[in-house]
């Protein structure tokens, strides 16, 4: 057999499929249902998969199409009012100068689905811009602008705008920095 069986390859890709599903649904149970539906669809469509092409992009495409078509079917019962999630953010970034993961997650959840998927595909799953564009059925430029907007929104939500960036540094470091500045001034 010259090509690996896509059925076997699919199993190896399950962890990243689950992670991608989780970034879209943000609910473990919904993510697992989504992966399950994706596996079933993929399995019955393997004859349409062109051996030697990008299986990962193919599977991710099935997963996101399933997610978006489910989403369209559902009446949006709960539109989260802007204030609800924002209120869960802590006031300031973590004192050690790193983004607190919990806060990051809250901020991430506030992005649009399209921004989340673009960021996860390129920023975390190692997709190229081209692969991400293929997966999302859009232009490379669209992916790039979703990523840029997503990053800007995250920075804003995490109080990481460049003006406030100094807040990331703890008071002790700040003191050293400003002392250094005074010395060189």
């Amino acid at each position: 057999m010259s090509h690996p069986d896509p059925r076997e390859e699919l199993i190896a890709l399950l962890p990243s499929l689950r992670a991608f599903a989780m970034s879209l649904t943000r609910q473990p149970a919904a993510a697992d249902d989504l992966v399950q539906d994706t596996v079933l669809k993929a399995w019955s469509n393997f004859d349409k998969f062109q051996t030697g092409t990008n299986l990962r992009a193919w599977l991710f495409t099935i997963l996101r199409n399933t997610y978006y078509s489910d989403r369209r079917k559902k009446v949006r019962e709960v539109e989260d009012g802007d204030g609800v999630l924002t209120a869960q953010l802590s006031e300031k970034p973590a004192h050690d100068g790193r983004l607190a993961l919990r806060d990051f997650r809250v901020a991430f959840d506030q992005l649009t689905d399209e921004q989340r998927e673009a960021l996860i595909l390129v920023g975390a799953s190692g997709f190229s811009y081209e692969e991400a564009a293929e997966t999302c059925g859009c232009a490379v430029g669209t992916i790039k602008s979703r990523i840029n907007r997503g990053r800007a929104r995250l920075a804003e939500l995490m109080h990481l705008s460049e003006n406030e960036a100094m807040e990331m540094t703890d008071p002790a470091t700040m003191a050293v920095i400003s002392a250094g500045r005074t010395a060189t001034a």
């Binding site: 970034s23 993510a31 991430f108």
Partner: peptide
């Protein structure tokens, strides 16, 4: 963190966190 966090540093922290949430499930 760099002493003068700029756009690159912010971006780096964002990507780091993206990978963390991805890997947590993966």
């Amino acid at each position: 963190a760099s002493p003068t966090p700029d756009k690159d540093a912010v971006q780096k922290q964002i990507d780091e966190n993206l990978r963390k949430i991805f890997e947590e499930t993966a």
